[in-house]
């Protein structure tokens, strides 16, 4: 008896057990009673930092989670690189890319280029206004990355609008992540707490030097502190991370 027969025979059993699993999950979900919990406190204290509560939670209270999340993306980018030969044990393997150039049609050429610039501008707006309006570094970075995708799909890898090499994308990504890490370290050095929002100086009793508060406070009506800078770092990182992934996946050799 080979595995295929066993597989067919056992489908029913597995389906029954998955059914049991689903019944319990659905039962739990439908008998839910939700309490506001910590969200209420965040909504209460958040407005004194920045208007957008979600950004405040992401970059202030749970800024450390966001750091972890950024590093998941970095790990994925490195892993995709390893898969296609960069950093494999025993020396790098160069992949010959076949999708390097492509001849766009006239319609594509006329519409793609301006659209790319509009999308990039939109992404920058989303990033910089992340603490006031719905948006932020992740959203802005991924919007800019879509512009890169568009340009790669229309013009090919080699001759696209951005003409970013793999190396420079990597440097961008490293710089983005280092901005985040170093702002966190600044908080650690000045107040003793990692990722303390130095610019906003929410707890003045910690003895943060005034020059540092002035340096890192964002020139804005609200008192967002380091959040906009973190947004910029995350945007750089997300943008270059997605771009690297798409470059690597599109460059995979078509046998």
């Amino acid at each position: 008896m080979n595995t295929k027969d066993i597989y067919e025979m056992r489908t029913v059993v597995a389906a029954v057990f998955l059914g049991i699993f689903s019944i319990f999950v659905l039962k739990a979900l439908t008998s839910f009673e939700i309490i506001p919990g910590v969200s209420y406190v965040y909504n209460l204290q958040g407005p004194s930092i920045a208007p957008n509560m979600i950004t405040v939670i992401l970059f202030d209270w749970r800024g450390y989670d966001t750091l972890g999340e950024a590093f998941i993306l970095i790990t994925a980018v490195f892993t995709t690189g390893i898969l296609f030969g960069r950093g494999v044990l025993g020396g790098d393997v160069k992949v010959r890319d076949t999708a390097a150039t492509r001849q766009p049609s006239v319609v594509q050429k006329v519409f793609a280029a301006p659209l790319v610039f509009i999308i990039v501008a939109f992404g920058i707006v989303i990033t910089l206004g992340g603490h006031i309006t719905p948006g932020g570094g992740f959203q802005g970075g991924s919007v800019i990355a879509t512009a890169f995708f568009l340009s790669v799909v229309v013009f090919g890898l080699r001759k696209n609008v951005f003409s970013l090499s793999h190396r420079s994308l990597e440097t961008f990504e490293g710089v983005g992540a280092l901005i985040y890490l170093c702002l966190g370290l600044a908080g650690l050095g000045l107040s003793g707490y990692y990722l303390y929002n130095v610019g906003a100086d929410f707890y003045p009793g910690l003895g943060v030097a005034q020059w540092a508060v002035n340096l890192l406070s964002y020139p804005d009506a609200t008192n967002a502190g380091i959040i906009p800078y973190l947004n910029i770092g995350i945007a750089l990182k997300v943008l270059s991370g997605f771009c690297t992934i798409i470059t690597v996946l599109m460059g995979a050799e078509k046998k």
């Binding site: 059993v13 597995a14 389906a15 029954v16 998955l18 049991i20 699993f21 319990f24």
Partner: peptide, 8 residues
């Protein structure tokens, strides 16, 4: 699949 159902 079996263990997921069984545990719950």
């Amino acid at each position: 699949a079996i263990v997921m159902g069984l545990v719950l």
